[in-house]
Nucleic acid binder design. Sequence first.
DNA 1: ATGGGGGCCTGCCGGC
DNA 2: TGCCGGCAGGCCCCCA
Length: 283
Amino acid sequence: MPELPEVETVRRGLLPVMEHAVIARADVRRPDLRWPFPDHMAARLTGQTVTALRRRSKYILADLSSGETLIIHLGMSGRMLISGAQVGGFHHDHPAPEKHDHVVLDMANGARITFNDARRFGAMDLTATETVMSHKLLANLGPEPLGNAFHEDYLIGRLMGRNTPIKSALLDQRIVSGLGNIYVCEALFRARVSPKRRAGALSESAVRGLVPVIRQVLSDAIAAGGSSLKDYRQADGELGYFQHSFDVYDREAAPCRNPACGGRIARIVQSGRSSFYCPQCQR
DNA sequence: ATGGGGGCCTGCCGGC
DNA sequence: TGCCGGCAGGCCCCCA
């Protein structure tokens, strides 16, 4: 499910068919995802030019010529599919709508963008571009982990005095926005920090070590997504789902990838979520 | 303020 | 083959 790197990869995949393109027709096939769609969403999208396609945390933001921004969240199972565009030298026709195809955007350039979301934890809303960052869904997000505002002293300050496990703290989108369960597990493994450690009890140097590791984990995943993008688009037009290889995530009982270790990956549950880690390496 | 838990949905997988 | 419980990478909301 999409965390920051997957959302960024979806955004990059949408750019060639969506940015600076005109929405000729919007088909809203059900009244809601996680929440009701905004009033008259189809009409407010129809005829608009997408002037920019941005990302904030796990949200994709499509700025429209009307002065509104379409906020898109993929939730757990949201996917974007592109059809009907010149993709990788092949022309794809529009497939028949499938189950859970909830919103279909037909672009004037011939591309069709389909939002499919089985679990419907995703969301869409429309709001004024000028105040989009104050939108309820975006207002309380912490800094982008790949941006300048996320740095060692910032994280030290935010973790200070916190009794919650570091795993939970890094999942807290108000502290840093864009990480999900997978990349928190991966970052803690690379930093050799146990997910059970209390956030406020980490040494300053441990927190300092976390920052570049988080950046690297996300950068690596974005790079992997980018390299798989071309193949996926050629295959079936689906964006955002790639098989990354993880060091710890979903590797319970498998050998630790640290060659000097010899331990096995463990799974524990923290606030209802699985944490995967190496009890030997991560302290 | 902080930390923890419930709930939203559907699909899939493993066990019987 | 079918049924059932458990689980899933997110996030809001409520409670103590």
